[in-house]
């Protein structure tokens, strides 16, 4: 009997721990979400209420109506897609070469990829900015794409190459017998097997580019080409802080990131590509 009560108490204590942990993690996010759904006058009422007194989407409407937020978002998407395409395609080709051929220096190249991934971004931002100035890619989204390729491609190569090493070569060899060339073997036989790693690489690149702030701040000088990390921050001006746009914008840009996370979280925790995020 005593044992039973003790067990029950333990269970309650455990659930309390779970609840604390969950509140710690998402409490702040929920508060932001609820704040974004109240009219601006309610922002500054004291004491604040947990739920809005009036629920409204006014902040979201005015974000779309009165700010270039849509432009920021489109720019971010453009840059993400560009960097993902280059990093993934070039990464797959390089990884295939590194894992399936024998030539001198291929191990060195792999290790250098991992090394490049760990370089402090502050070390690269100055020379890359000068390079962008030289080839006139400053304040162009294309320049930002190449900078993001520099930041994400090395890790993509490394991840894909390591994954390649775990794949059997028999299928490819069988396809050679069937008369496939190297290129068609890569496309028809290898790529399908590579899909989990490609997903990991795409998610990594997306998260990185979607988050990136410093390069965007340095490279882009006009509102028209701004990505949202710098764009949202520009709502904090020296005269006023436009919380209504900041809160609603922050919620909106979080949605794609959270969706990508939810789609991949099961495999993340199982171990595919855990840590495939540089953060």
């Amino acid at each position: 009997m005593k044992m039973k009560i003790l067990n029950k108490l333990g269970r309650i204590a455990f659930y309390l721990c779970v609840i604390c942990l969950v509140i710690y993690s998402i409490g702040p996010i929920i508060w932001m979400l609820l704040s974004s759904l109240r009219p601006k006058v309610e922002f500054f009422t004291i004491p604040p209420t947990f739920f809005p007194k009036t629920w409204t989407l006014e902040n979201y409407y005015s974000l779309f109506r009165e700010t270039p937020f849509v432009q920021f978002l489109l720019n971010s998407m453009w840059v993400s897609i560009g960097a993902i395409l280059v990093s993934a395609v070039v990464g797959v080709m390089a990884a295939y070469s590194l894992a399936r051929f024998n030539y001198r220096g291929r191990n060195l190249f792999s290790i250098f990829s991992l090394f490049a991934y760990m370089l402090p971004s502050i070390l690269l931002v100055i020379p890359l900015y000068l390079l962008a100035v030289k080839i006139q890619l400053v304040n162009k989204l294309q320049g930002l794409v190449w900078a993001y390729v520099a930041l994400t491609m090395p890790y993509c190569i490394w991840t894909l190459r390591s994954f390649f090493a775990t794949l059997p070569t028999e299928l490819e060899e069988a396809s050679f017998i069937d008369g496939c060339g190297r290129v068609s073997a890569l496309i028809r036989v290898v790529l399908p097997m590579l899909i989990p790693a490609i997903i990991a690489v795409v998610v990594f690149t997306f998260q990185y580019v979607w988050n990136e702030y410093m390069f965007a701040l340095v490279f882009i000088t006009s509102d028209a080409n701004r990505t949202f990390p710098v764009g949202l921050e520009s709502f904090v001006t020296s005269y006023d802080v436009y919380w209504e746009w900041i809160l609603s914008g922050s919620i909106l840009v979080s949605i794609p990131a959270v969706i990508v996370f939810l789609l991949t979280q099961r495999s993340l925790i199982r171990g595919y590509g855990a840590g495939a995020i540089k953060g």
Binding site: N211, S250, A257, F261, I277
Partner: peptide
Amino acid sequence: MLPFFMPTVA
């Protein structure tokens, strides 16, 4: 896991 997957600026 959410805190880690929200965008930095958000």
